[in-house]
């Protein structure tokens, strides 16, 4: 079933019906921290400073930032391959995260997990699509009745995995407090959603009688207002909820592997909060943007200079 809430009155980037209220400074700081963190990773890759792979969340930063204040300390967050923003919005520990990605001293997980496998203070990411939803259902089962919930981020591509349906079925059957956040950016690595998904996320949730809500707003404050009563319902009524964000991946899947047509990339870029805020709120934006950029530059320089991480292998 789909939850009916008043439609957001605010912005769609193409429509821009009205100027949104400026984001709160803390939110803007977090958005820009994540943005510059991700841009720095791409830069470090190009400079040959990073190994392996990484998946940045450019354009999607507002989703975990919006959710951050709806989650409590006792909640458990499960993330995926594209999880740096999820982490930074949950824990303000960019040094530890970058050290993890770079395999340096102070790494959150000794450099073993790297970009896609972080477990730190009730935040856990792992790299196999769909695998986290049954785990999240188990965590939610353990949390049931405590008022805490399990929040799992997945993408539109994840809906190809059978584990998603097995988990949704159990989550609804057993009424567990599970918040499934779908970052529907319209593309799974290189495959457009239209070429890999028949039907809609809403209909798939409805098939299990799981509440579904679609978010089209790109404004952090607006999204919070919209979702707060729904998230409260997940806790109080102990039931799963699928929140589907219509979002856009501004950057490549990982690094330099964007095969989309220029007009598609331009369309994604047109939805980017970064350019819009720079244009609409030049004063706080330019200052905070510079501050966060410089902060991440300092973090990168400091972490790069650290010795390699040490791991005591079990």
């Amino acid at each position: 079933m789909t939850v009916t809430v008043p439609a957001p009155t605010g912005t769609t980037p193409s429509g821009a019906r009205r100027t949104p209220p400026p984001p709160e400074p803390e939110d803007l700081e977090l958005l820009l921290l994540i943005r510059h963190f991700e841009l720095t990773l791409l830069r470090l890759f190009e400079a040959g400073e990073l190994s392996g792979t990484t998946h940045t969340c450019l354009g999607q930063e507002y989703i975990p930032v919006a959710l951050s204040r709806l989650l409590g300390d006792d909640d458990f967050v499960l993330s995926n391959h594209r999880g740096h923003g999820h982490f930074l919005a949950r824990h303000a520990e960019p040094y530890g995260l970058l050290a993890e990605i770079m395999g340096r001293e102070g790494a959150l997980c000794a450099g073993v997990g790297g970009s896609q496998h972080v477990y730190h203070r009730r935040f856990l990411s792992t790299g196999v699509q769909g695998e986290s939803l049954p785990v999240a259902t188990g965590v939610a089962l353990a949390l049931k009745g405590t008022g805490a919930l399990a929040c799992a981020y997945i993408g539109d591509g994840t809906w190809g995995e059978g584990a998603v349906y097995e988990a949704l079925n159990m989550a609804q059957l057993w009424r567990v407090p599970l918040l499934v956040v779908v970052e529907h950016n319209g593309i799974a690595q290189s495959t457009p959603t239209a070429a890999q998904m028949s039907g809609r996320v809403a209909a798939r949730a409805a098939a299990f009688d799981v509440l579904h809500h679609r978010v089209t707003s790109l404004e952090v404050g607006e999204i919070r207002t919209e979702l707060a009563p729904l998230v409260a319902m997940v806790r109080q009524d102990s039931r799963p909820l699928v929140v589907e964000f219509a979002t856009h991946r501004v950057g490549p899947h990982s690094k330099g592997d964007d095969t989309r047509a220029p007009e598609e990339i331009a369309l994604a870029a047109a939805h980017d909060w970064y350019d819009r805020y720079a244009r609409l709120f030049p004063e706080p934006f330019a200052r905070i943007d510079r501050e966060r950029r410089e902060l991440v530059e300092r973090i990168a320089a400091e972490v790069t200079a650290r010795p390699p991480s040490a791991w005591e292998r079990p």
Partner: peptide, 8 residues
């Protein structure tokens, strides 16, 4: 997976 989640 649910078992692992409970354990976690």
């Amino acid at each position: 997976g649910v078992g692992a989640g409970l354990a976690l």
